[in-house]
Amino acid sequence: MQGSGASDRLDGRFGRHHLRSMANLSVLDLSFVGSGSTPDQALRDSLDLARHVDRLGYGRYWLAEHHALPSVASPAPDIMVGQIAAATRTIRVGSGGIMLPNHAPLMVAERFKVLEALFPGRIDLGLGRAPGTDGITAQALRRREAPRGGDDFLDRLQELMLWETGGFPEGHPFNTVAVMPAGVPLPPIFLLGSSDYSAHLSARLGLGFAFAQHFASFDARFPMLDYRRGFQPSRWGAKPHAILAVAVVCAETDAQAERLALSTQLATLRRERGEYAPIPTLAEAEAYPYGDAERARIARGRDRLHVGAPETVCALLAGLAEATQADEIMVVCAIPDQEARRRSYSLLAQAWGLAETAVAA
């Protein structure tokens, strides 16, 4: 599996310099809780992984917002963004994302201005429109109902942007509110999506866009290319910036990576059934009695999971970057073993050309 043909592909069409010039490489972290571990350990693992990929040369480190899920430790990406920015040196840190319907726009503006003040030029504000949880928990988060039961994401996004521009209409009561810390800009804004809705909205407003290929059923090419074609420069961005988030499991050989991916595949299978238990260990995944229907379901989802040795994964990601014209590939790796996860990012960084001396750590 590690023959000269794969190496030739990496050094030729998918050579390191070509890969790096085509798309930057970043990290998406959900603070996954592994079976037999604990949520507090998952949070510490996120800090450890962030320091690791910072040394390897990854461009961004984003944290997601999920609530009441036993498999995800952090419901508060803004807190984690500050902790990780403080623990790292150069990597950009951001939310991937803040689920805006769960939050008052003023509070989002205040918190991310604080982060920008403390870590200038290193913070990103990624925004999503889903609740990041189930309906009951969404109610507990006190999500206000939109008029006629509709989606109020657009209203909240407009309000958030007006807190930055000061463009509330004359006589509006919010004109008397000072957003602190004064004089600090909002970080760059990205809209997150798994369909074409956020792609079109991001393009129209001149914002960044991130597509969640790791769980979307929508073909990533269409929203990514639509975003780039429809982008309108604005005060928020002079040119488009499209991020493609992908699930990856990388190991020294294809066979080793396929074995590690068993945990990720079983976790995905359970999640699609509404089961949000911690990520199963490799032993649990190997011992699981898969039925034919379950195996078929896993096979159908393999186009959203990129598995293999470094040259295998790089070829897959390079093809995706080319097809979607992604400016950046953002990698999420749901391996419950922290050392194997660190190693996955190390191998990918070295093969992609981020760090010629990426260590086996």
Score class of each variant (00 low, 15 high):
L25D: 03
I279K: 00
M80K: 09
M99Y: 04
L141Y: 09
G150Y: 11
H200A: 14
Q338M: 14
G206R: 10
S46R: 04
E328C: 06
L262F: 01
R270I: 00
R204K: 14
V72I: 15
V307M: 03
G353I: 06
E145H: 12
Q83I: 14
P185D: 12
A261P: 07
A323S: 14
A257L: 04
A293G: 07
D151W: 11
P188F: 12
E322D: 12
P173Y: 03
G353N: 05
Q325H: 14
Y288Q: 11
R342C: 08
G167Y: 06
G149Y: 12
D48W: 07
L125Q: 06
R297N: 12
S21Y: 00
G206Y: 06
E284Q: 15
V108Q: 11
D54W: 07
E159S: 13
G128A: 04
F231W: 10
D8M: 13
S21F: 00
G291K: 11
H67R: 05
L347G: 07
A216S: 15
F215D: 08
A76Y: 10
A321I: 13
P188D: 08
A277T: 15
V359A: 15
R9T: 04
S46D: 01
A238K: 14
A212V: 11
Y290C: 11
G94C: 05
L100S: 07
T268K: 14
Q139W: 03
R16L: 13
P101T: 01
P101C: 05
S74F: 03
D124R: 02
G96T: 03
H214L: 05
A86Q: 14
R111H: 09
P77A: 00
M330A: 13
S95G: 08
R304H: 11
D151L: 13
A76G: 06
R89C: 05
Q83Y: 11
D155I: 09
G135K: 09
P289N: 12
R129P: 07
P105W: 11
E170T: 13
F174E: 11
V93C: 12
A326D: 04
P240K: 12
Q350M: 05
I79Y: 02
G135T: 06
E286V: 12
F190S: 11
G121Q: 06
H306I: 04
L201E: 10
A216W: 09
E311Q: 13
A64L: 02
G301D: 14
S195C: 09
G96K: 08
E275Q: 15
E286G: 04
A296R: 15
G128Y: 04
S46F: 01
S95T: 15
A86S: 15
V53T: 14
I136P: 00
W62C: 05
I329C: 04
A210H: 02
M22G: 07
G128H: 03
